[in-house]
Amino acid sequence: MKTPGLAARIAAAIGNEIREGRLAPGTHLVAQIIADQYAVSRFPASEALNLLVKQGLARKVKHRGVFVNDLSPAQMAPAEIEIDLIEKTYALLADDVLEGRLPQTVSATLLRENYGLTQAQVQTLLTRIVKEGWLEPRSGYGYAFTEMLTSPDALVQTYRMRRALEPSALLEPSYHIESSVVQRLRGIEEHLLNGGIETMSAEELYDRGVNFHEAIVGASRNPFFLDALKRINSIRRLLAYRSMGSRGRYFQQAREHLEILDLLERGENEEAAAKLEVHLSTVIQNLDDIRPLLEGRSVQ
């Protein structure tokens, strides 16, 4: 069973390298190297390796790691077609949720019939959505959609809350951000400015922003700041995806993220907090410009 999303796209790309002979049988696949290559954290890189093992394209050797397998003829076919189908269905389903076209409780059968998927494809879709936190299994039967933001006004309110919360986290007496975290975050932002903004999926862009803000807030060593931010992020995902139909503003956001990292690295936390407050205020202003997009209408 294939899982769509960031990990699956990485796995598909590596799988194609294997099928095309660019990664020979026996090649050692290292999660950190893959994470660096695709400018992601180790988690999706490790998930991608697990997918390659499940697909039979690689094998896991105890105490040694993951290695490329010899392929059978049946394994030579690319996996992108099914991934693309599930990605498109995910987008349709997300839009149906935002527009209230689905009931609060759904079954796998209903989704299979609504979107013309196989049982395996529906299970793949359900696994992803449950993992993202906006659908949860009901005891006994079916799935229920969790609380989600469905209006632009509500999304603006989350940013106003974040503007009050996040800069304060940077001023905590216990604040300390590891240099390795700064370097990892900087690499992702530089990747965005070097073309990633145009090529990354909505999911990847969203996760990149979530990871940046949760990392700098988490460095406060005050778990209450991070818990509050995670709660906000868990309920704004779908509207955030819709907002990514307009990507020009991400160049400015990436540059501002880099400026905040530079200030934190120098220990200038008060300046970083002030910059972060301005950064979030700018995002709030930008949301007004894309309100039609957030409401499911085209931006003129």
Rank of each mutant, 00 (worst) to 15 (best):
M1L: 03
K2C: 02
K2I: 14
T3F: 03
P4K: 00
P4Y: 00
G5H: 05
G5K: 04
G5M: 00
G5P: 10
G5S: 12
G5I: 00
L6N: 02
L6M: 08
A7R: 10
A7I: 13
R9W: 07
R9D: 08
R9G: 01
I10A: 07
A11P: 02
A12I: 03
A13I: 08
I14G: 00
G15Y: 07
G15S: 12
G15N: 13
N16W: 09
N16E: 15
N16F: 12
E17F: 04
E17R: 08
E17A: 06
E17W: 04
I18R: 05
I18Y: 04
I18K: 13
R19G: 09
R19C: 13
E20A: 11
E20H: 06
G21M: 09
R22T: 13
R22F: 14
L23N: 09
A24Y: 02
P25I: 06
P25M: 06
P25K: 00
G26A: 10
G26S: 10
T27L: 07
T27W: 08
L29E: 15
V30P: 02
A31M: 08
A31E: 13
A31P: 12
A31W: 04
A31C: 13
Q32A: 14
I33L: 09
I33H: 14
I33F: 11
I33K: 14
I33A: 15
I33D: 14
I34F: 03
I34A: 03
I34H: 01
A35R: 05
D36M: 10
D36Y: 05
D36A: 11
Q37N: 10
Q37L: 10
V40I: 04
V40G: 00
V40H: 05
S41H: 09
R42N: 10
F43T: 06
F43G: 12
F43M: 12
P44S: 12
S46P: 06
S46V: 04
E47G: 11
E47P: 00
A48R: 03
A48P: 02
N50H: 12
L51I: 15
L51A: 13
L51Y: 04
L51F: 06
L52D: 01
